[in-house]
Design a binder for these strands. Structure first.
Lengths: 214, 214, 214, 214
DNA sequence: CATGAATGAGATTTCATTCAT
DNA sequence: CATGAATGAAATCTCATTCAT
């Protein structure tokens, strides 16, 4: 008996979560296709195959819907990047793990990575969704960790004595640039070629002994 | 008589052009403040101190207004960057001129640079402004020139033998990263420190003989 | 067996009736708190601790729910006021009984009295609740009885020869004014002071021999 | 030249005011016919023969529209009643002037009087229009003046020594009762008969020397 | 020409009602 | 029967665009 009840509750819950995901996915698709302001709740409802009213059972309003869409993805991204930075190994190994994770994220989760990875910062979304703050916090935390990593490398004499903050920003930006390429190019660039070239270009520039062959 | 008419016509023309600029400037200000969709024609009219109807004498509709706003700025940016790349001197000197011009453009013309330089991506999401194509063309032309420059440097044995296209993209992105910093930081970063660090980091990585002290 | 069935039926019936009351009470509370249009069926369901669908097993629709809510209260009020007017004693005594009953009703059953007693008017504006007719009938019957009482008093020479209808309306309105005071005042007025003053003011004005000390 | 300009401005202004009145009148009609919540902006626009958007050029939103509708009428009512209370003559004369003015207001301006005169206080309008406060202030001011008048009469020994506040409320309510009659009756009651009876009934009850024959 | 009042299509959001579980 | 998720019609409000003055 208890099991049956539990199962029923569980099924409901699972269904609820599935519907929520369907709505968020529809919203994500439309966000890419039409942008935030041009995506209407009618659009989302139609794409998710629900009635408009149903959308509002899951999300208080349009703003909240998109905020939750962003936050869920961003937090996932932050977690994964943190895991990369927490890997065992020296500074170089960690940065390379960060790099690989970024590329993976971009490939796996293009939409959100596109927005998250440097390409968002302000635009059409900015004035409407009051979420930029959270986004900036996440960015600030990640940049802070990168900066610490570079500082540690500089102190240990592994990296040349450049501004750790600029290095962190530069590294992060370079890594993110792959996205811009993905967007702009008709034929997507080869991931490995990209990683290899960035590694050489960037780390050759900052390693004290340029014996870095990844 | 003919001269007078010409003068009158000329004055009219100049006035017409001046009004057009006032409208575009108002639109630019509002674009930064409120974003594209949230900026109304009434807003623009009020800011430019014209009547709404008057705006429509200058621009067929809202879409065209913003397209012309972007195109004018972007073409100006392209011209200036081309001039930098056309300077006398070797590849390194030209890249450094490009770099300096970018920073100058960002500082002088933040609004458009912000949109142009790397922040464009989620603008590309918005199909309303059907101008992304033109933007990509400009980018493609500039990247093509950068790529050629790198290829030339590699062929002359001045740069290490990396993929010229990746180098071009990487360089351009790094240069544009200054904008992200401007946006994200409370206290703006020192321009010179930035230029110096990027120069070292990047060119140390790709110069065959790292005797580059700008 | 028959008895058992009867008992079961009876218990069901009693439960059905109890649930119906719970729903009506919830609706009444919300009516006061939020007004008719702003009270949603979801609100009522939540307050009554039933599911929305259940509400519809008791009442065909929202309109009917509120109609039944009003009618039940109003019929109760009519019954009690009729009992007051049926009391033994002369005209004055009956009017005073009517008066006391009104005050009691207002105190005991503020919500409905508020709607019933004089505050109804701009409810009559609302055509949604098609119940105004029934309300008017009840009012008409009660006013008719009051008018007859005044006419009888006038004929017996106990009241001065004024228009019985206007007297009835005036009396009824004065009595109802206590409600307006209850609503408008921060510190509620003393019931006894109110009754005493109204008695004197009103009956002094219409009694032939003003020896009326209630 | 100046005159022409002035005239043009004036014409615009007059037209603006006229349109505003047309909208308010349409809203008032519909308020009586359908109630506040059931009256839609579409309704008002259709009745006033404007487009919906036009209504919003005159009133920020529905709430404000109705607030201005009420306030304008209420302030007019307050002014007229104050004028009645400011008339030369003794307390009795002023109260009778107040009474006559009320009846006149009710007859001339039924809708607003209906809402203003005791019949509003709380209902469908209450939870939506945040104007009840202003309404109560006006009521409080008027009741205050009535109370002072009664107190003055009591002190001069012209009225019997009853609670001045209850007298004020009672008088005001009685006077307003005519409205309830207007609403409930098919054949409207004779104004003069009403005034005469109320005068006698009420003032007989409170005058020390009942030589009051108006 | 310039003006800005008027327009009305379209967006967001609510909520009475239904119906599969 | 009870439930409450789903529905979609309808309400409010916005704003690009037109056009009489």
């Amino acid at each position: 008996m208890g099991n049956i009840k539990l199962e029923i509750a569980s099924r409901r819950e699972r269904e609820w979560y599935r519907h929520r995901r369907e709505i968020l996915s529809a919203a994500e698709e439309l966000l890419v296709e039409k942008g935030f302001e041009k995506t209407t709740m009618q659009d989302i409802a139609a794409r998710a195959e629900f009635a408009v009213g149903t959308i509002y059972r899951f999300f208080k309003n349009k703003k909240v819907l998109f905020e939750e869409l962003f936050l869920e993805s961003w937090r996932d991204i932050e977690t994964k990047l943190n895991q990369a930075l927490d890997q065992p190994g020296d500074e170089l190994a960690r940065l390379q793990a960060y790099h690989r994770t970024c590329v993976m994220l971009i490939v796996e989760n293009e939409t959100m990575a596109r927005i998250f990875y440097g390409q968002m910062a302000n635009f059409s979304i900015d004035p409407y969704v009051g979420i930029v703050g959270e986004f900036r916090e996440i960015m600030k935390r990640l940049l802070g960790r990168l900066e610490a990593l570079f500082r540690s490398g500089i102190e240990k004499g592994r990296f040349v004595d450049l501004d750790a903050r600029v290095l962190a920003i530069g590294f992060d930006t370079l890594v993110g640039a792959y996205l811009a390429v993905l967007l702009g190019e008709e034929k997507p660039m080869d991931v490995n070629a990209w990683i290899k070239t960035i590694n050489r270009m960037f780390f050759n520039g900052i390693m004290v002994h340029s014996s870095n062959e990844p």
